[in-house]
Design a protein around this nucleic acid. Structure first.
Length: 248
DNA sequence: AGCCATGCACCG
DNA sequence: CGGTGCATGGCT
């Protein structure tokens, strides 16, 4: 109709046509659409993860965003070694045995174990975590309207030519499929990216404010989504550091 | 200076 | 009255 940029889920799921709205080359570079990606490309994406590309400020992205390399490493049975992200004194619930098989379902009472187990499931299906987001009040209350950080959006999601965006589909680890609308708003001279329609996923995983929505991607470019309760590492991001008074 | 969470107006 | 799109403000 009179809606340029209107794309149905079928087009995306059945091979991504997105004609005119997404530059195919850029889309392929993003690795997101259902275009066959060879393992080397996937590897590239993975290494890009560790680097947190995007430009000047690699350090701490705003609030809810963080790349979960530590959990991923744990899931792969490697030592996290790097930064002070995780408490290595927790004994190792949720780790994998040398055989690579998960021992048991993670303790529901152990958020760290839940996170590690989820990372393991994701890795087990050959997907790589793109990013994770702690859900804000507006992410949850807004009917599943989740704000996606610009840097991540432009690195890993389909390039958008129109604010009206496109429809994309994803699956979770239980075989459920989701349909989202991927779009942006014009904000000042920039863009604000939104993933709409995450309400169902939030409900399925019982996600509340502070809980984490996980985005991953398979080598073939398909999107994998999941959710998990917040764990201790997640809370560090929100560390309320109060500045001491200069001359109290 | 940029980015993102949220308030709010407008439209159905 | 709920949903969608926009603009503003707080915070880094």
């Amino acid at each position: 109709m009179a809606e340029p940029g209107r794309i149905d889920a079928g087009a995306f799921a059945s091979g991504l046509q997105l004609s005119g709205l997404i530059d195919p080359a850029a889309a392929a570079a993003a690795g997101f659409p259902h275009m066959p990606l060879d393992p080397s490309t996937a590897q590239l994406l993975l290494s890009g993860l560790a680097q947190q590309p995007g430009g000047g400020q690699p350090g701490q992205p705003g609030a809810g965003l963080f790349l979960n390399s530590a959990a991923l490493a744990a899931a792969l049975g490697q030592a996290a070694g790097a930064g002070g992200l995780d408490g290595s004194g927790d004994g190792g619930d949720g780790e994998l045995g040398p055989d690579g098989e998960p021992k048991a379902p993670a303790d529901p009472n152990d958020p760290e174990a839940v996170a590690a187990a989820l990372a393991a499931r994701i890795a087990a299906v050959g997907a790589a975590v793109i990013f994770e987001k702690s859900l804000t009040a507006s992410d949850v209350s807004g009917g599943g309207r989740v704000v996606v950080p610009k840097s991540v959006a432009e690195q890993y999601f389909p390039k958008l030519e129109q604010p009206s965006g496109v429809t994309i589909s994803a699956s979770d680890l239980d075989g459920r499929t989701y349909t989202f609308k991927w779009r942006f708003w014009v904000n000042n001279s920039s863009r604000m990216y939104l993933l709409e329609g995450a309400g169902e996923l939030h409900r399925n995983y019982g996600l509340e404010v502070g809980d984490v929505m996980v985005f991953a991607q398979k080598p073939d470019g398909s999107l994998v989504v999941a959710g998990r309760v917040a764990n201790k590492s997640d809370l560090i991001k929100k560390a309320p550091i109060k500045r001491p008074p200069p001359n109290a």
